[in-house]
Design a protein around this nucleic acid. Structure first.
Lengths: 159, 159
DNA sequence: GGCCGCATACTCGGATACTGGGTGTCCGAGTGCGTTCGG
DNA sequence: CCGAACGCACTCGGACACCCAGTATCCGAGTATGCGGCC
């Protein structure tokens, strides 16, 4: 099980966007995070499709969060990048082979699928409980309250 | 995020093995589950390397669980197949770019990495709480107590 | 001086190559059983 | 009749192709800005 690398970039980008009222171009986010600009842009498109960020074209265009950072969960971002499909997909092994279970007895999911789904729910719940605002606050705390101010200052500068 | 297909086969195989005292060849497990024999064998090798099953060669060889099914968690099986590496790997974005955090301030993991690790822990805990014996019991309950008996009967038959 | 139109530079968005891990398969090495031969 | 040696069939184990999703990149479409010209 491997999570796309873009998830990390998207989460950092959302935290950064939470510090700016004005649109921030993808190229600028890429510069700040030290990532390939074109590839980061691809993931930002996914965030846009998911309705997490709003994009504006033109000379002073860029990306802005569509709603307050406290209303965007880490789960929202992860699902936007990685998709909503669960990690475990039951292929209905029980309905194959010499001991195949007839279809009419497969109303409820396989017990193994239920266990895996419960684990996925626990994972999702943990991510749903964390918001972008929480992440920004914690990053700030890790740096004794200077990190987010530095980001705001850098975003305001002409680069 | 996508979980290897072999995880499903491995879990079903372990449940099946929990119903047999005698070694069960990979080909027989593949026949019961309707899976490609060679590919299933590959995953059983992983279970063997992880110490979950013991393999015996020779004419009446096959695979046997190394310990009671109640002492094998779903997490053990998943990790044997999928590896122990966490889904989210922090690439230390904070240490790159114009606002790079100096190394001496990176003693603790990034707040984002901590959040993702917490989610992974929740996922792992949910799987660790389920044993192969639990799964066998639930599958039996789903079938009104006939499934495991059918498996035992089929394994005992000469096929 | 104010307003309108246009060229411009910048932005996003999707379409296009490349690569690594998962998928699937095969054959060789090794082992325990059954048979057979000798005592 | 009993024991040991042999052959065998069956098993696992690792090494070898194939394919899709993630990785990375580029160029075209569209838009808000700023300037210049006109009234």
């Amino acid at each position: 099980m491997k999570l796309s690398n873009g998830v990390e970039w998207a989460l950092h980008s959302c935290v950064t966007l939470s510090q700016s009222e004005d649109p921030v171009p993808a190229a600028r986010l890429a510069e700040l995070h030290g990532t390939p600009p074109a590839y980061l842009a691809k993931h930002l498109q996914a965030l846009s499709r998911a309705g997490i960020v709003h994009s504006t074209a033109g000379q002073v265009g860029g990306y802005v969060l569509t709603r307050p950072a406290a209303e965007i969960s880490a789960l929202d971002v992860v699902r936007a990048i990685d998709g909503t499909e669960p990690a475990y997909r039951c292929t209905e092994i029980r309905r194959r082979g010499p001991l195949a279970v007839p279809a009419e007895r497969c109303q409820t999911p396989c017990a193994i699928a239920r266990a895996m789904a419960a684990a996925q729910d626990a994972w999702s719940a943990a991510l749903a409980a964390i918001t972008i605002a929480d992440l920004a606050e914690r990053i700030d705390a890790d740096s004794d309250g200077t990190a987010m101010a530095d980001v705001r200052r850098w975003l305001a500068s002409t680069g």
